[in-house]
Design a protein around this nucleic acid. Structure first.
Lengths: 336, 336
DNA sequence: ATGAAAGCGCTAACAG
DNA sequence: CTGTTAGCGCTTTCAT
């Protein structure tokens, strides 16, 4: 049998209440017994059961993390930074890759609820409104990360997507591009439309007319991005530059260009988003709008745990600044 | 208040025992009451507490996953595949990135124990023997993945590392290379030495003498790999090919070569290991020994859950085959 | 077929 | 300063 608080109490010749108190450092315990209990616990390699203590209303010290796909480097890096902060604070992360699939979302959320996680960090879309409503009704602490959820009042940390869109687009504009296409992963999401706003703003500044046909949407993988790029390239007025809303998509663009024997950046400029490990590795290295991933992860965790501890009402919305990292995938257009 | 089994019982006009039985489909319940209880549960959006049920000795439906680093694409992809299988089976994954840091390992393992996870999947080295011993003593179901743990009798799934080493080296040999260096992440681990055995076997077959100086070790990051590559390149007899034991390291080699203005594959051939998403993306695309990641992930999860369910004694050791994916980072040596 | 009751391991009053 | 005791939400005999 696993050793329990009773075993410790017996061995130390005290009551379980006393043991509980020394474990939680509550109430007053004589230095003497405290020490003795500690010794016994060490001796018997006693591990207090979080399960039992959670049942009495305390924390489970588990946080759910809902992301689209752990195999996507951006989310892996994000998860890692969230995990690190959790580890520092004594919380574990329960991973949930939803693939933006409503069924998976629902199934994961149900599991998380049943496990009574202390809170949930949401980095994925929640296709089904009811899921989110259920979470809120049950007052489960929530925090959104790297995405906006305007319809909900909740803690969130994300970057200034308008600025991100502006940064990428104005870089291209200043290089002399006028036919700049957008490749977005999910236009419906707020960050997508914010980035487009930033992009449009950059165009306007330069007196370039906005061309709806230059806004393309694609699933978030190099392959899907590649296919969508071919379409863009085959249009009437092919763009001279493509601004992808994540690095995976940008890589798809690069691959499409290679297949067409277009040289990047000379025949086609590409800018990515997220500045993941991939950006520095592709050929050519990708100019990319960088998100401060370690910061973001740390801050969501902090904000969530703050909400859990204080059960405070005030919600924070932390907006961090993106940054343009210029590498070799962008240049002035060869033929204007 | 959250709705509990009592609420359901009251609303349905039955005892909590009955409700419990319909939830778990145990005992005999009249179709009539069963249906009624189900309805009420749906109506009240009742979620049985895994915490409470775990306290009575049932599963927590949580599995710990110990890996070195979630931000490393190989482990992210592996985690994803493990997670997927878990999700199918109703188990959640608790992520633990240890950075091969003994302190973190200990801290995570303690947390996992306290949470009474049903089992732990270990993909990391366990620097501290006592940790592992503690786990085994407490009879916590364990499964090792992508690494060998010869000192322990336990379920494990991994690739044939000897074959992996042989595949990479013999490819290089057949191209005409004779000065082939190894860049390993952790020589101490069994997979490392197995791969080296495979490498030596390939050399022997070709009558090439084994040169200990060609075996280098490095931390598992592009940067560290790059530094180590410079040393290799600066040695008396610089190698004409480098076989890295993971893609991150191989990328370091590529970067080092670029900095030295060496052309890959003409001045230097490189082969990686793992065949992660990175391999297809670097310039030039990397020849890499591929691990069947989705398979591996699925199989560990199956094996672990098998062990949890049946508490069986028989341990399995599942060995999968690696495969050489030839891309553009390898060629015959320009100057032999 | 259903229910009463005894735990599971721990916390939190409340007494002493 | 320490112990008694009543739960927390659920499972599981054992009766009925």
């Amino acid at each position: 049998m696993k050793t329990t608080i009773y075993d410790i109490a017996k061995a130390a010749g005290v009551s379980i209440a006393t043991v509980s108190k020394v474990i939680n450092e509550t109430g007053r315990i004589s230095a003497d017994t405290r020490e003795r209990v500690h010794e016994i616990m060490k001796e018997l390699d006693y591990q207090p059961s979080v399960v039992a203590s959670a049942l009495t209303g305390k924390s489970t010290f588990s946080i759910g993390l809902l992301i689209p796909d752990l195999a996507n480097p951006f989310f892996a890096e994000l998860a890692r930074s969230v995990e690190d902060r959790g580890q520092e604070l004594g919380f574990n992360l329960v991973m949930c890759s939803t693939d933006n699939n409503p069924k998976k979302e629902a199934s994961y959320v149900t599991l998380l609820k049943q496990k009574r996680v202390d809170g949930i960090i949401i980095a994925t879309g929640l296709s089904d409104e009811t899921i989110l409503k259920g979470l809120i009704d049950q007052k489960i602490p929530l925090a959104f990360v790297a995405r906006d959820m305007p319809s909900v009042v909740s803690d969130s940390v994300l970057i200034d997507d308008f600025m991100g869109g502006y940064l990428g687009a104005s870089h291209l504009v200043s290089l002399g591009h006028r036919r700049i296409a957008i490749l977005s992963d999910d236009l419906a999401q707020r960050s997508g439309s914010e980035r487009i706003r930033g992009y449009r703003h950059a165009l306007e500044e330069a007196g370039i007319a906005f061309e709806p046909d230059y806004v393309a949407e694609s699933a978030s993988s190099p392959d899907a991005g590649k296919r969508r790029t071919f379409e863009l390239l085959d249009s009437e007025k092919p763009p001279t530059a493509i601004f992808a809303f994540n690095d995976l998509l940008a890589i798809g663009v690069v691959q499409a260009a290679k297949e067409r024997r277009l040289s990047i950046p000379w025949d086609l400029s590409v800018v990515g988003f997220d500045n993941t490990i991939l950006a520095g590795i592709v050929d050519p290295p990708l100019t990319s709008v960088s998100q401060p991933i370690p910061d973001i992860g740390r801050q969501v965790m902090d904000v969530l745990i703050g909400a859990i501890r204080d059960r405070k009402q005030a919600k924070e919305r932390i907006v961090l600044k993106p940054e343009l990292i210029v590498r070799e995938s962008t240049a002035f257009p060869r033929m204007v």
